[in-house]
Simulated scan of single mutants.
Amino acid sequence: MNAAGATLVIGATGTTGSRVAAGLIAEGHRVKAAGRSATPVEGAEAVRFDWNEPATFGEALDGVDGVYLVPPIGSSDPASVMLPFLRRARSAEVHRAVLLSSSAIPAGGPAVGQIHQALPGLFEQWAVLRPSWFMQNFTGFTPHARSIREDGAILTATGGGRVGFVDAEDIAAVAVRALTDEQAPDADLILTGPQALSYDDVAAVITEVTGRPVVHRHLTFEQLRDRWAAEIPLEFATMLAGMDRAIADGAEDRTSDTVQRLTGHPPGTFRTFAERELS
Rank of each mutant, 00 (worst) to 15 (best):
V70F: 06
T255G: 00
V64N: 00
I25M: 05
A22W: 02
R36Y: 12
T220F: 03
P40A: 13
D62L: 10
I171Q: 00
R48K: 13
D50A: 15
A97W: 01
I10F: 05
H216Y: 04
T7I: 15
R227E: 14
D201W: 01
A21V: 09
R90Q: 11
E93R: 15
A6W: 08
A196R: 09
T192Y: 10
I206L: 03
I206D: 05
R177T: 13
G109K: 02
G159M: 01
A3L: 07
L122F: 02
P194M: 01
E59K: 09
I154F: 10
G74N: 02
W126Y: 11
I154S: 11
A21F: 03
A104F: 13
H216V: 11
F57D: 11
L100S: 05
N2Y: 04
V81F: 10
S101D: 11
E231P: 05
R88Y: 10
V205N: 05
S91Y: 05
S147Q: 07
A127F: 01
S91V: 09
G268A: 11
Y68F: 14
I73D: 13
G109H: 08
V67L: 04
R149D: 13
A187D: 14
H95G: 15
E169M: 06
T158V: 03
R276V: 14
P72S: 07
E27G: 14
M1T: 15
A118Y: 00
P233V: 01
S132T: 13
V215T: 14
V70T: 14
I154P: 15
E208Q: 08
H216I: 07
G11C: 03
S147Y: 03
A203C: 08
T258A: 11
P110T: 08
G242S: 06
E150S: 03
I115S: 00
L83Q: 09
T220P: 05
R254G: 08
S103T: 13
L100R: 08
S103H: 15
V205T: 06
S279C: 15
D186I: 00
E124K: 06
A104M: 15
F138I: 04
T210I: 06
M243A: 05
Q136S: 01
H218L: 13
S279N: 15
R19I: 10
M239V: 10
N2R: 14
W133Y: 15
G66Q: 12
G23M: 03
A38Y: 12
Q117K: 10
E53K: 14
Q183C: 12
E27N: 13
G268N: 14
D167K: 09
V214N: 07
A22M: 07
V214D: 12
A4R: 15
V81C: 08
A89T: 02
T192D: 00
L99V: 08
A237Y: 04
V98Q: 04
H144W: 05
G66D: 09
G5C: 11
Q125W: 00
D167W: 14
V9K: 03
Q183Y: 06
